[in-house]
Write a protein that binds this DNA or RNA. Structure first.
Lengths: 104, 104
DNA sequence: GCGATGTGAAACCAAAGGGTTGCACATCGG
DNA sequence: CCGATGTGCAACCCTTTGGTTTCACATCGC
């Protein structure tokens, strides 16, 4: 597993960050201010979460006038999911081989 | 996303824990002492990681005499990967619908 | 029986991280 | 032009957590 994948998991391992992501996925696009409005945390907190998510590629951003709109990046999530599935399959294979070896 | 999934991600979001998991996947099975031997951390540290991984279902354990052998649970990893993929697909659908709406 | 080895758990440390308040700057609208 | 609103960032607090050392107990082998 690459170091960057660990960072993605770390980013996903926080409940508030999931709320931010969910809110973003429902809206499609939104600023930190708007997202903070329906979450029980302050805007700076949401902003920091968005920066974390942006750094690992789970969201993107575009500037429109004075506001910055963030949006979820499904590809990143999907790519990580795929690598996880591959890894799980590799474990299965490995474990089966070891078990067979133990029986002989 | 369920609360338990967040905990799984949190568990996967640590580099040392991945080393523990990888070491375990290669051996198939192993005790905290054995794993700690080829990692740059102490045995208690490895033990705590294994307890975290056990609590979220990413590893299992069985007792053999005085030693406890841990082994990776591929199903758990695979299940989480599947839910991630489903979520990514849901995002795609949602985003496409919103984009279409914006154009009309 | 007894030393050697393995185990879990507690006490303790230092770093990381989620949260807040406050501030300085940019942009929109009257 | 100027107030209202939006933005990023710094400073700070407190909790979490990864790590260590240390201890008491269980099991193996001679």
């Amino acid at each position: 597993m690459l170091a960057t994948d660990t960072e993605v998991f770390s980013a996903l391992g926080d409940a508030t960050r999931w709320q931010v992501l969910t809110s973003l996925a429902e809206r499609g696009e939104g600023s930190a201010t708007v997202i903070a409005r329906d979450l029980p945390v302050s805007r700076p907190a949401v902003l920091k979460h968005l920066q974390v998510l942006d750094r690992v590629g789970l969201v993107g951003s575009r500037k429109v006038g004075r506001e910055v709109l963030y949006s979820p990046r499904a590809e990143r999530l999907e790519a990580t999911a795929r690598r996880m599935a591959e890894l799980a399959a590799a474990w299965d294979t490995r474990l089966a081989a070891l078990k067979k070896l133990a029986e002989s």
